[in-house]
Design a protein around this nucleic acid. Sequence first.
DNA 1: CGTAATAGTCATGTTACGTCA
DNA 2: ACTGACGTAACATGACTATTA
Length: 357
Amino acid sequence: MELALSLGDTPKPFSILDHHNRSQQQKMKDLGFCMGLGNRNNLEDIHFKNMMREKDDDGHRKTDERISSSSSPDPSPPPLQLDLLPFSPVLRSPPPPPPSHRCFPWLSKNLIAEPGSQTKPVKPLEVKPLAAVSDQDNGEEPVAGESSPNNSNSGTSSFQMDFSSIFKRSNSGRLFPSRKRDLELTTVNLELVDVIERDQRACSRGGGMSDEDENGLTRKKLRLTKEQSAFLEDSFKEHSTLNPKQKQALAKQLNLRPRQVEVWFQNRRARTKLKQTEVDCEYLKRCCETLTDENRRLQKELQELRALKTSQPFYMQMPATTLTMCPSCERVATTTTTTTTTATPRPQPATTGSHRH
DNA sequence: CGTAATAGTCATGTTACGTCA
DNA sequence: ACTGACGTAACATGACTATTA
């Protein structure tokens, strides 16, 4: 049984996390949609606003320095961009996979409306092409589960709404509605985003939230490649938990969705705990067997002593005897102590050990 | 300061898929 | 080809914490 536990190790930082801008740009790509607000620093998906916070090495949350550095907002914030690029089949054409790129089932099978596919086309939301979505035009490789927004034939759609007057950003980077009236609107929008995200999840699984959706499609399960598993294992050895930045970085490196990385770590921790439980169980079982044997032996010894008592009543006149465990050989040693018995025929010296190795 | 709302993470249990003997 | 066991990805749920209004 193999068990690798790394407890108490100082988490090592991810080297890739040094590339803040790069990973930040990738965040929205990983999501498959993006939603930006106000100034450039607000180009953060509201769903991932808390990703701006991270835990420090001691596990305590701390505010990302990027947030505090965003205290000087762009004086002329552009309108918010809500680029909704769900994995809806009707919204995209199959992204041509690079020759060296792995093929992922949720892209090849589930997301693309293949001829003969029973996937019902999803009615696109309000379509209004964006003039430029800079974050998705940085020439980086597409991440699994993401779209190819700049594909002119893709038919991708985007929202373009002005939310800059609706939201305001807190000191820690969170987004909040600036007015009470906007709260309701915000709620509606957040619900919309949530619905879209759920739809993305459902699409990425190739099925619905239920086991079998209305089209009779069951969810497909991704099998991680050996390389991906090995990389995740290495990361797990360094630290068994992830902060949002590490999750994002790993997802980017492995061409996985952050959710997949998160799930993998959760399952990995569960497996580790299960193995540890099995090890503990085995150990306790051995302890139990040892104690059972010891108990049996002591019972036998007790019977012998009782028999001796019956046959030799005079034996009871001996000083009181206590049994102690020899620490070196773990055998019982008899130790006698002086008592006040006056009829003791053979006084024994106090605390004389009668055990011999 | 206390509280409600919200969002994120985690542990835990379950389900369902892929693989293999 | 079929089947059951097994590993595991994905999900559901509740608890907990942090943050903000």
